[in-house]
Design a protein around this nucleic acid. Structure first.
Lengths: 245, 245
DNA sequence: TTATTTAAAAATATCTACATTTTTTACTAA
DNA sequence: TTAGTAAAAAATGTAGATATTTTTAAATAA
């Protein structure tokens, strides 16, 4: 068997963002490998919205056969990152202001709902976890490159929010949230660059997070939900400016 | 090309429950056909929870090759109706009281949220639609067989609820709702038989629906959301009784 | 000429049949 | 029993065949 560089690299290292979708068995099959790589490349903008995903290119570029590649693509269709037309292949899903609004509206309402549940249902471990993650996020300072800064801040910011919603006690709601987050990811990237490299913007976020933590630990459900709702919606304006088209 | 009976039947008739996932092009490919058939069979109980989905059986039974069949199966894994273990194939997802509680808890919160939005955002057309569907549902009477009764009542009941949530103006939230509904479907079937064939239960539902319509048309957001929340949760007790194991 | 239709060719998507790898089962010997 | 091993079954992947769409070019009509 021909072992490609890509394959061996992938299968050896445990995937970072392994969603609960593929808990079982770390040795992934070709379709799973293709799914991860392609998803990452779409989110990171290696392919532009509307780009045709040519089977011949995908096959050679990822060194994966047509069968497994189709499997990956049709999963990405379910994730709304790719669109398919029968007999005409696959394309990277378009981005639009309408979709941006739709996704963020849904995210804000869902995240507020989940936050409210977390306030009701979260235990002391949850409180500790939130506090810890908030602390780590507030201490993103000693970094070398701007790229590193962006990566670290984003990672800790995500962990902070994840720690909050983890208190909700509903794995189904967390799955739905994860699905929306995936769909928002390409839009979020536009906001991220703007925010992380602006001291003003960062300070504003720091403030919002502090208020959020305060409401959470004081078990003020209504206020926490309200703060979260607006916190989620706040990037929309920035993203609209930077949205191509 | 060999055209199987299954294939020709499927491709000719427009599929009923075509989710927006595959809007484009009615002439579905083999993977889509397999997905629809298999999903229906799992929901209808043709395969039991935990059953192994043997490739050799699936191939011969649906007259579809391994490639497209894998594609369909991995979509069903994303839908949580099937589980996969790498190199060990696919199984029908197990059912459990824990999952039942999880799904219905999430559904109740989400449906209440969406209902609240519908009250805020729904226009007159929405009101009219809700009223119309409520009327149709209340008039499920002149039917022949019990099976027909079940089918018609379920269909109209679903349409009634769909007409309510359609007012929310968020296609993303509606997609999430549809996903949960799919996951709930096998549990719902257990409740449905109990409910449709009991005059008491039907009357109770009729009452709840009437209250719901009243709250909706009076634009009483809080009451509508509250009623919806409990309406969704109400089947849990019945389902728990009938849940195998 | 310019636009439109038609026909052939090329490119592409999709499927099937077969090959390979992995797991499971059955059997044997300690 | 238990461990080990060979055979069978099953899952997964590949290559090539087939069907469909798109492109190109030629032919026709305005």
């Amino acid at each position: 068997m021909k072992t490609s560089v890509i394959n061996s690299t992938q299968t050896s290292g445990q995937a970072y963002g392994a969603t609960d979708k593929e808990i079982e068995s770390s040795k992934a099959n070709q379709a799973t490998i293709a799914y991860r790589l392609l998803k990452q490349d779409i989110i990171n903008g290696a392919y532009q919205p509307g780009d045709k995903l040519l089977m011949s290119h995908l096959k050679s570029h990822y060194e994966i056969g047509a069968g497994p590649m189709r499997e990956a693509l049709s999963q990405l269709v379910a994730d709304r990152l790719v669109t398919a037309i029968s007999q005409r292949g696959f394309r990277v899903a378009e981005m639009s202001e309408e979709e941006l609004t739709d996704i963020y509206d849904a995210r804000a309402h869902l995240e507020a709902l989940i936050t409210g549940l977390a306030v009701e249902r979260g235990d002391e471990d949850w409180e500790a976890e939130v506090l810890g993650e908030a602390h780590k996020l507030s201490r993103v300072n000693e970094v070398n490159t701007p790229e590193e800064m962006l990566e670290i801040w984003d990672s800790r910011h995500k962990s902070f929010h994840q720690s909050i919603v983890n208190g909700c006690g509903s794995s189904k709601l967390l799955e739905l949230r994860a699905s929306l987050l995936d769909q928002a990811e390409r839009y979020r990237q536009l906001w991220l660059k703007q925010t992380v490299f602006s001291q003003n913007a960062l300070e504003e976020k720091r403030q919002e997070h502090a208020e959020l933590v305060d409401a959470l630990l004081n078990r003020d459900k209504a206020r926490a939900a309200e703060l979260m709702y607006h916190h989620i919606l706040s990037p929309i304006a920035i993203i609209k400016e930077r949205l191509p088209g």
